[in-house]
Amino acid sequence: MTVQPTGLADYNFAYLDEPTKRMIRRAILKAIAIPGYQVPFASREMPMPYGWGTGGVQVTASIIGPDDTLKVIDQGADDTTNAVSIRAFFAKVAEVSTTTSTAEATIIQTRHRIPEETLGEGQVLVYQVPIPEPLRFLEPRETETRKMHALEDYGLMHVKLYEDIARNGHIATTYAYPVKVEGRYVMDPSPTPKFDNPKMDQSEALQLFGAGREKRIYAVPPYTSVVSLDFEDYPFEVNRFDEPCALCGAEGVYLDEVVLDDRGGRMFVCSDTDHCEKRRAAGHRGAMASEGTLA
């Protein structure tokens, strides 16, 4: 990538220098070649604190080109500080066009959600990952967890699910729910709600995961099997919501609880703001929607 737009004399295209991007692309290619395997990479200091998506930003910076259209979401929303800042960052350092529309985006960087709208071929979903190691809380030694992955020694993962059922009567893990990729590697899907797990399976889009602080990149290529771990008698189930979105009336989507006042008033609305807005624009209305609530 040698594009050097005028007016950006102080920055290389997309902030990172070319050798760094090449190094990260190599890691990404390896990750794609071994679905679910965590590839170490030389994570760089980025102009934002760890935990704000430094891993995702480095992946995005390494794959983005001048013709790409970038969407950034944070827990499904395009309008949070984090999402707005990252979008602005790439608009500035890569001069790419940005969007909030899922369908229009070629690259979607996300923190903790997968858009409701089904992604298609040619789209890339970049996840920001805080802790890439699904076995971390069961086995703290990295030397041992790497060996467990290498030997497909995953009994411990089910021990955790067993403990969940023994304590709660059901699998109480609701986010960062472990999955097995292409029948081989157990992977942490990042702290997305387990509601989103089925969307990862056989997705037409390329899914890339970047963990900046932990210096790991992993990937799920298009059309790859992603299976949520479970027991035969306690099968994997997605979160269910009792009511539809209060604004757009959508059912079968992931909802956020919004506290309205200090007297217990609350509403449940789509976590995916783009999806909700599009539905309302198309005339769908939920129980608490009024003309004034839009935008």
Binding site: G155, L156, H158, Y162, E232, Y234
Partner: peptide, 26 residues
């Protein structure tokens, strides 16, 4: 494993060798 239940301690080897039925493991 001192921080997981007795049942899971006994069940771990079963799960590690492919047992996937919670009721049977327990």
């Amino acid at each position: 494993r001192m921080t997981v239940s007795a049942g899971a301690n006994v069940g771990e080897r079963l799960m590690a060798t492919g047992a996937r039925h919670y009721g049977n493991i327990r």
